[in-house]
Design a protein around this nucleic acid. Structure first.
Lengths: 342, 342
DNA sequence: CAACGCTATGGTAGCGCTACCATTTTTCAG
DNA sequence: CTGAAAAATGGTAGCGCTACCATAGCGTTG
């Protein structure tokens, strides 16, 4: 006598239960769910009724196993608390909330090794698409992405030689634009203050340097950086260091808005006039920049939109019509505010 | 003639490939991976060699299907960009990064309906554990969680009647402590300013009200709230509204630090002296509070620790030894700073 | 009206893995 | 040395679903 194994799943209804109740084959239920137009109205109604009555929810694991394709977007970001990536992730979530796709979010902690480990892990699920932050993948990561067998979108930055698709903007141009603005407003001894010098920060620094050199103003002592994670308190610290090193400083381009805010607070505390004595420019334009006192000039970036666009491109690729432009530059905008208006 | 179906997975090696190469049965490979102590040293080595050589990575979908249990933690939070939840999520990620568990993160957008939908979806995966923010689940959500068949941890708040386990603190006590501090420092016309009045904000408001009533200072016109999502600019707006409504205001307890920062900036802009004319208290103690000028008094909460503890409790429950205290109160701390030091 | 194509449905055979049990080998008390 | 228990290994049968192919029923065409 064959004893059927006890239902492992705690008795949740399966597709066969639905099929039996609706008086159709299991495969027809499957089709009604995935390609409704291939099933007649009548059956569709019956099946829906059975589903509702039983409270059936398809098992995504079984589905993934049978179809060799999971309805999962793998997303890799270097930080979960950094507002910049949080916004990108929010854009991704919002774009996928009405789709059948789930999201597998990984935190690389700015580590290439961790990125490789996570890609390996994500790859084992055969995701529908992968979205990764940055364009500086290790060779191993790059290979993993190329062989992932699904659309891949690199986000945050644009650059040459995309693995598959890209959405972002030029951090170098952003850094240059910010610095040129300070120069244009009459600042001369302009410092660069940066924390967590990831590749994007490096490129903003390169933009700063290009602008300064072009104006004949560059001096390596004007640059203050640290590998430590960025924060407002750190911005204050770094600014004090920069001032100690270079008391004639009359402006700072901050790697990001946290740093800029820290600089602003320290100026208040030390009674340094902004923008008269010191001009401040931030990066990303968090919403607090426009209400700060004085309001802080910053480079507006479109993080949420990057997330949305990345999903849109991935979905298009999944649907079979790959967008012809594989690299989308969403640009940025210099927001001129009080902190540089002297 | 039976034609085997083409390998769907793009030729990735399977457990049988490993077994063949190692000269053992598939089940032994499976065991070597999951319960190494039940396999002899020799075979373990051979199997590991085969795995390395083939680059085998187990398919989590097949694993979940066969074992009726996915190695997934389901996490539900109301917002991805709110720093508070981002910190909790970071704690969860950090605690699970060395475990075999993946994380399925869902964003409810503060909606009970969305929470139900996501619970339904997550439940279909038979997760190893569920972590949900808040204690005010809808009856449907509560039932889904009770029947999830896995450990459940409610985070951010403590309260009576946990579904399973809880980690958090009392928002009511937090609100009361903040308000009592203002009263103690000599403020009398103390306003409450809050955005995004979710249940936790409501309880902070209740704490404020309790303290004010006890001191005989409560006046409903002192309360300014909005359902809009919290932000620094909004804090500024609301403060202006509050002042217009109640020009004699001499202190504000802000629902969170974003609002507090907006209030501070508006005070600067309007040349209102902080803390002499207006005292400010925030909530959560983001790191910028201590460097703001003047530094802002706030209620320190342990978000990261909440995430870590929730995972620790869930892992213990999975391992079979449920902690005996099912409700963990991590408390909070009043950080007295310049913004209330008059 | 036979031959054809089309649409709607169903049956069968796995996807890659593990639960359950069976079998073999080793260990060790007596 | 023997018998029995324990440890190590393997075989079989699914988990719940879908790819692939088969089939039935229908209208269309020359």
């Amino acid at each position: 006598m064959i004893k059927p194994r006890a239902r492992r799943g705690g008795g949740r209804p399966t597709i066969s239960d639905v099929a039996r109740k609706a008086g159709v084959g299991a495969i027809t239920v499957s089709r009604a769910l995935r390609e409704p137009e291939r099933v007649s109205q009548d059956l569709r109604r019956q099946i829906q009724a059975a589903i509702d009555e039983l409270g059936y929810v398809p098992d995504p694991n079984a589905r993934a196993l049978a179809s060799a394709r999971a309805e999962v977007f793998g997303v890799l970001v270097p930080s979960l608390t950094n507002n910049v990536f949080a916004e990108v992730v929010r854009g991704i979530y919002d774009s996928l909330s009405d789709s059948p796709f789930r999201i597998q979010l990984g935190n690389t902690h700015y580590s290439g090794l961790e990125e490789e480990r996570l890609l390996q892990l994500f790859g084992s699920q055969r995701p529908a698409a992968l979205i990764v932050a940055g364009i500086d993948q290790t060779p191993t990561s790059r290979k993993l992405l190329e062989n992932a067998g699904c659309p891949v979108v690199q986000v945050m930055e644009t650059g040459p030689d995309p693995i598959d698709m890209m959405v972002g903007f030029s951090h170098l141009d952003g850094g240059r634009t910010a610095t040129e603005h300070l120069i244009e407003m009459g600042y001369r001894r302009i410092g660069f203050i940066g924390a967590r010098m990831d590749p994007r920060s490096q490129r903003r620094l390169a933009g700063y340097r290009a602008a300064m050199e072009k104006a004949g103003l560059f001096d390596p002592r004007l640059v203050t950086t640290t590998p430590v994670l960025s924060s407002v308190p750190l911005g204050r610290e770094l600014f004090r260091d920069a001032l100690a090193k270079m008391p004639t400083l009359d402006g700072v381009f901050c790697n990001n808005d946290d740093i800029a805010l820290g600089v602003l607070f320290e100026c208040h505390r030390a009674a340094i006039d902004v923008p008269k004595t010191i001009g401040i420019v931030g990066f990303n334009d968090l919403d607090m920049m426009q209400v700060a006192f004085p309001s802080i000039t910053s480079i507006r970036t479109y993080r949420y939109e990057i997330g949305r666009r990345a999903v849109a491109m991935a979905l298009a690729a999944i649907a079979g019509d790959r967008p012809q432009e594989r690299v989308v530059d969403l640009g940025f905008e210099l927001k001129r505010r009080e902190s540089t208006a002297r």
